[in-house]
């Protein structure tokens, strides 16, 4: 009884479309979207990086690696932008990581008002960057709130956004303020995942508060740290909105970043090929950085 079924050979999955077709149909719109707007677009950008391409001219000569060599060897704005972006990343990533972690520690141990604490710090993160940037432009105004507060202390405030030495730090400060809340919440989630047993054991061993943080909290937040630093570094390399709104890359090119010059070349100068080449150079930089970060955090011990 039932012997026929029992001996039948099991058919491979691909010959049983009933089992998977519905799933693929549901995923199809998203796959199409990603294909068109990510995969194909990325491939096209690589392709046009070898051409002189301005969208409408019928003449689109193949220029080989000229766009790349121009960026690397002839365009001083490219190097200025790379330097500015690197400084921005080196300022923003550690600042947000440290401040976010410290705020999370404070919030985690708060006995009362935890929700209020989280809400306050998360509010800037859900406010659009354009709005935040515009507000900070006014705060940084020569007669703005920051300088008025400094004036109360008897300090003559600087011209924050039109000073070549202060413009980039001003953008960094605003970015840290806007972004830190999001990463604070990530750290809070990570802290909540650490079992209390570890702390109890540490206490039994006589660890003080600092030693608990140093030998329990930080190691057990390794994965969170990896996530935070990698995503933050990638996002920081792509800084654009605040620069566009607050300084337009100025004064001079003091705050011109990689994304900003990509935008400027692509959509203001209509040098699509050149902008694509810079985009790929930026990709290589970010890719190398992420690989380096992953190697740094590589560990057989998973937490």
């Amino acid at each position: 009884m039932g012997s026929t079924r029992a001996v039948s050979v099991r058919r491979p999955l691909w010959r049983q479309p009933r089992k998977w077709i519905a799933g693929y149909l549901f995923a199809a719109p998203a796959i199409c979207f990603i294909l068109v707007f990510s995969v194909i677009s990325i491939a096209i950008s690589l392709y046009i990086s070898f051409f002189q391409y301005d969208v409408i001219s019928e003449v689109r000569p193949f220029v080989g690696l000229r766009n790349y060599t121009e960026a690397l060897f002839r365009d001083d704005v490219f190097w200025t932008a790379l330097k500015n972006t690197t400084l921005y990343v080196l300022s923003v990533v550690p600042s947000i990581t440290v401040v976010g972690f410290l705020l999370a520690l404070a919030g985690h141990h708060a006995r009362y008002g935890r929700s209020v604490f989280r809400t306050i710090y998360f509010l800037p993160s859900i406010t659009p960057m354009v709005v935040v940037a515009l507000i900070w432009v006014w705060l940084y105004s020569p007669k703005g709130m920051l300088n008025q507060m400094l004036g109360v202390l008897g300090i003559h405030g600087p011209n924050w956004l039109f000073d070549r030495n202060l413009a980039l730090p001003s953008v960094v400060i605003m970015s840290v303020w806007q972004t830190v809340g999001y990463y604070t919440v990530i750290y809070l989630a990570g802290l909540a995942d650490i079992p209390q047993d570890y702390y109890d054991a540490a206490k039994v061993d006589g660890a003080n508060r600092w030693q608990e943080i140093r030998y329990v909290t930080i190691p057990l937040l390794r994965n969170v740290n990896l996530f935070v630093t990698v995503t933050l570094a990638i996002a920081a390399f792509q800084v654009f909105t605040q620069v566009y709104i607050m300084t337009r890359g100025g004064p001079g090119n003091a705050t011109a970043t990689m994304q900003f010059i990509i935008f400027r070349n692509a959509f203001q100068y209509f040098r699509m090929g050149y902008a694509s080449a810079i985009s790929w150079l930026l990709f290589l930089v970010v890719f190398a950085l992420v690989i380096a970060q992953l190697r740094t955090y590589r560990s057989e011990q998973m937490f």
Partner: peptide, 10 residues
């Protein structure tokens, strides 16, 4: 951008 650098003393 060049003239702006003059205006900020760069």
């Amino acid at each position: 951008t060049e003239l702006e650098q003059v205006m900020v003393g760069q």
